[in-house]
Design a protein around this nucleic acid. Structure first.
Length: 243
DNA sequence: CCGGTTGTTCAGCG
DNA sequence: GCGCTGAACAACCG
């Protein structure tokens, strides 16, 4: 579930609870459930992979990590980390991280970094990318300070679309390629959203989990690369290595 | 049925 | 203090 577009879908599914009062709060998360009682959800927001339930002067930050799941009205097996009952239904969150944010969200989050946000700023993203010349592309494309909401699927698909080898450093590639990464990231984010909603996301993968390059037909490499050591699928022939 | 993973944080170590 | 490694979390798919 966890990449940015999936969190936007979750937000849409839970939007009916915005404006509602918490009648019951429980779960294994290490927060004080009592203080949530009778408080009104003033907004539900997202930033990258962060799902934000805003109460007056307090925000619950839910991160699904790798395995997290949620449901509405239908409890799953296992103990929820957080369960919130409202007049119009109950929200369940499993295997996730739940933390509290006391500060003003605008002081915590740079909304221009979030691929899914209206305030997404490609020029600012190019600048942030450029500021890490020694970072490998396979790490940069997962960096939430540069591309909030991007995940491993994004990384593999964008590197393939831009014909860039994952082991290039940011500084080694042309400025035009840096711009192409930023552009494709944003384009793919909304394709991901559309395809995920339609249940056809996997069908559109060109690189992620693939064994053969769809462009030239030779076998993909599958390696765990970079500081992030995440699965990377790439074509040694089609994806250019500058340095 | 087991192995692997759309992710992040933190403890422990050198 | 730094960077690196591994653990922890714990659900589902193939």
């Amino acid at each position: 579930m966890p990449e940015g577009p999936s969190i936007v879908i979750m937000q849409e599914e839970m939007q009916a609870f915005s404006g509602k009062k918490i009648l019951e709060a429980s779960g294994t998360a290490n927060i004080d459930m009592n203080k949530l009682l009778n408080r009104k959800v003033v907004a539900i927001k997202t930033w990258g992979k962060h799902f934000l339930i805003c109460l007056p002067h307090l925000t619950l930050r839910i991160h699904l990590l790798l395995f997290g799941k949620y449901s509405i009205d239908e409890p799953r097996k296992g103990k929820p980390k957080l369960q919130l009952r409202f007049t119009n239904g109950t929200l369940y969150f499993y295997a996730c991280s739940v933390t509290e944010i006391e500060e003003d969200l605008d002081d915590v989050y740079d909304w221009t970094t979030d691929l899914m946000n209206k305030q997404w700023d490609p020029a600012a993203a190019r600048k942030r990318l450029r500021s890490h010349p020694d970072m490998l592309l396979c790490d940069a494309l997962l960096n939430q300070d540069i591309f909030a909401g991007a995940g491993n699927i994004f990384k593999n698909e964008i590197l393939f679309r831009t014909r860039l080898h994952p082991l290039n450093t940011v500084g080694a590639i042309p400025t035009s390629k840096q711009a192409a990464i930023v552009r494709e990231m944003h384009t793919y984010a909304f394709e991901f959203l559309r395809w995920k909603k339609a249940g056809v996301l996997k069908k559109h993968w060109e690189a992620h989990t693939k064994k053969i390059c769809p462009r030239c037909g030779i076998p993909f490499h599958k390696e765990y690369l970079g500081k992030t050591k995440r699965r990377t699928f790439f074509c040694e022939s089609c994806q250019i290595r500058y340095a």
